[in-house]
């Protein structure tokens, strides 16, 4: 049974339709990657999944439950955690504040201490800057805070929207390694990325989002050559 399934979702902003009848499934085991050109609706899809944007039609199931009509807050309460694109976060809060906020939901609160240990183990850098304001951190550090905050929410499914966007190669490699660690720790991931190689390493199932629809799906087990993906990406 899939942990997340999206059925025929259509959504947009105002009169603009961005997503058109999107359906997909994410397995209980193995991660899922989304990729596709800029501005074709990947972020919008994630916003619909996490309840920030209500779809015009279609349904979303998480672990068998229909979460379409639930508020973003209720969805966080089920353990579906979304790390938004662009690490804007809370500029005037300290790292410590952010971690406390991550554990705000009733579900995450009992695990606060244990999750804090995990975050510090994963991102030791954050411990050094524990009382520093987010606005004074580097881009890489801010991304760590974003992911760390999400881990504090005790995720059952973690959604990352372009976690490596705008990072220098070295920092990016470090962050990719951390994301792989999280996955090995047993949290299934849905990741949006432009870096196909990273996605291939991380996930067993890929979706190409193009013009607001799922253009191509690559099933688990199907092996695909890099060149094939490139041709999907850039058209025929």
């Amino acid at each position: 049974m899939p942990i997340l399934s999206v059925e025929g979702v259509t959504a947009g902003y105002g009169r603009v339709t961005v997503l058109n009848d999107v359906s997909l499934e994410a397995g209980r085991h193995g991660n899922v990657g989304f990729f596709g050109p800029n501005g074709h609706g990947k972020t919008t899809l994630l916003r619909v999944i996490s309840g920030l944007l209500k779809p015009r039609s279609g349904r979303i199931f998480f672990d068998g439950e229909d979460i379409t009509a639930r508020s973003a807050r209720a969805i966080v309460g089920t353990g579906l955690i979304h790390v938004p694109q662009g690490n804007r976060l809370f500029p005037d809060l300290t790292i410590a504040d952010c971690m406390a906020l991550g554990a705000y939901s009733a579900r995450a609160r009992p695990h606060e201490a244990e999750n804090r240990e995990k975050v510090i183990e994963l991102f030791p850098k954050l411990a050094e800057r524990w009382r520093q304001r987010v606005r004074t951190l580097s881009g890489g550090e801010r991304q760590m805070v974003s992911i760390g905050t999400a881990l504090m929410s005790h995720p059952r499914l973690l959604i990352l929207d372009e976690p490596t966007l705008g990072l220098a190669p070295k920092i990016k490699d470090e962050l990719c390694a951390s994301v792989l660690d999280i996955s090995k720790g047993g949290v299934p991931l849905i990741v949006v990325e432009q870096d196909i190689e990273f996605l291939l390493e991380l996930s067993s199932q890929l979706y190409l989002i193009n013009h607001g629809t799922v253009a191509t799906e690559i099933k688990p087990g199907e092996s695909i050559a890099h060149s094939e993906i490139m041709s999907m990406y850039f058209g025929h």
Partner: peptide
């Protein structure tokens, strides 16, 4: 306090607040 922290968070970023489960 935790609620005070939540108030300060909402003031800074509403979307991110919803994504950590705050009742905006």
């Amino acid at each position: 306090t935790r609620i005070g922290l939540a108030l300060r968070a909402v003031a800074q970023n509403e979307d991110a607040s919803q994504l950590v489960g705050l009742n905006v």
